[in-house]
Design a binder for these strands. Sequence first.
DNA 1: GTATGCTACGTTAGCGCCATCATGCAGTGC
DNA 2: GCACTGCATGATGGCGCTAACGTAGCATAC
Lengths: 343, 343
Amino acid sequence: MSDISDPPARRTLTLRDVSEASGVSEMTVSRVLRNRGDVSEATREKVREAARALGYVPNKIAGALASNRVNLVAVIIPSMSNMVFPEVMGGINAQLEETELQPVVGITDYLPEKEEKVLYEMLSWRPSGIIIAGLEHTDAARAMLQNSGIPVVEIMDTDGTPVDCCVGISHRRAGREMAEAILAAGYRRIGFMGTKMALDHRARKRYEGFVEGLAKGGVELADWEFYEGGSALGKGRELTAAILDRTPDLDFLYFSNDLIGAGGLLLAQERGLDIPGRLGMAGFNGVELLQGLPTKLATIDSCRKEIGREAAKMVMARADGSLPAETVSLTPSLDPGETMRTV
Amino acid sequence: MSDISDPPARRTLTLRDVSEASGVSEMTVSRVLRNRGDVSEATREKVREAARALGYVPNKIAGALASNRVNLVAVIIPSMSNMVFPEVMGGINAQLEETELQPVVGITDYLPEKEEKVLYEMLSWRPSGIIIAGLEHTDAARAMLQNSGIPVVEIMDTDGTPVDCCVGISHRRAGREMAEAILAAGYRRIGFMGTKMALDHRARKRYEGFVEGLAKGGVELADWEFYEGGSALGKGRELTAAILDRTPDLDFLYFSNDLIGAGGLLLAQERGLDIPGRLGMAGFNGVELLQGLPTKLATIDSCRKEIGREAAKMVMARADGSLPAETVSLTPSLDPGETMRTV
DNA sequence: GTATGCTACGTTAGCGCCATCATGCAGTGC
DNA sequence: GCACTGCATGATGGCGCTAACGTAGCATAC
């Protein structure tokens, strides 16, 4: 008796509640809410109305378990503060937008053990596909990817052997091409500046390609500087000051990304150096954010958005079986900006 | 007969497989893998070994359904390319790191309908909590938050009425304080530059607070400029050129964020304007990225990381019932940098 | 009239796991 | 000897949903 006026017992709603409220079976409610199967328009309306009135939100956990289908795509990347990865995410998002699929992000902080942990966690939700940055994984992680039985797309990098599909650019080649362009422009006393890259394999490959490209032209790095922690203008400024003080006759500085490059550029300009005559400079990534600096830094585009889009497409195609394992290597373009002599 | 040599049928593994491989019941395996309940060390080892050998990955979908517990926290934010939000995420991540909880991100693109959709989608996974940016939601979204029965923390902004908990800063007050500081420094011909902010409520509140602050000092905005789309150095440069050409006697420019502010600053310096004597400038956010520009822009810190951390803490505390609904308003500090006259 | 096909539902049997309770079995106290 | 305690493990039921199949009811065909 008393419970008539009790506050609505806050049990969470189920299909049964909607089914009772609308006078049809749970199955029919399920069909209506998923837009599946034959249900008359009259019933559909009745059910939808009841669901709305109750404030019913389906339980995807139960749905996924019953149907063995999950509309999630795991995206595993090293960092969100790198600017590169949010842009890749943008591409993935854009591509998945029109589909049922939803990206779910995991962050590894460039740590292999953490990657392994995050991957395990992600797989335990049985996603429909995995997009994961890089080709270097622990043995256990690689095994998980292989055994997962779902589409795997490794992104960013194509220098290596993918588990399944792969889309990215060759960072080794990007480094080599920059070296060639620098030599072609007549620079000879060349310095390098980048992260301590034990775990950033792509930065390492660019560096290796760069050194190799110089070597082919008979030139060795004149000086170098490695740093730890995030990239920012301040860091580039600081390191550039250090390297220029130490080796004043450098005529080119290659930075492993645009942001520290821009910092270096600002410093060099403050010091009144003739850019690109006396000193040339180049970065990597082609970030848009920096369009607007007084001088445009030479760079190589890393095709971030396109990689994201392509990766999402590959996951979908692989899921419906319309694609064999393949590697797509995009071709980034070198933009000499205003900080390299033109030949 | 023939199937002895068939390739291992790639059914996905279940507890039962591990249980058979290790000779104990499913229940015991479950206990071992979750580190729960009394299981002898000998059995533990046996089970773990079997699970590892098989490459078993638990099915959280089934686990969540059975236990009615999900270790996910939904984080709903407008954008990932705004730099502000990745930093908030950083704070959330840092705080959740040591717990079982995992953030899952949804992006709304500043669109109320999309927010509603994303929220519905998120709730259908029955997360343990929700962190959502802003206090303005559609009626339906607000109802969902209220009915969800889980902790809700609205972040970034405290000017309004939260559904449950809330942590952020008062943007209205931030705008007002900047106005007061500008007037105190003796500037009088003041221009404003910001996004067309129909949907960016926080930018709008800063603007309103700013105008209000000026009004209290008997000053009106001398000129203003609104733009659409993302914020970048280039945009700030362009708009600043326009506003300075149109109203050359401006003696202060207030930008609704640091990035366009920095663009404006670079342009003003190229034009050889005396900063902060002839022209003062200020932005908003206190982004670290820009430390390293030749001149440090005046700004107000938006406490991003702290908001993230606090929000995560509140979700946890609210989940275990140790916290009543509350609003935490952080106090951002104004940094005059080098672009405001000192009084 | 029976056969046939079609639409619009309902019924049943799980999906893989975990909360809960039951159980066996050793050791302990008197 | 018997109850009692504590520990390690097993059996059972069900979380909320959906795939697959079943069927009532009506229309059409001959």
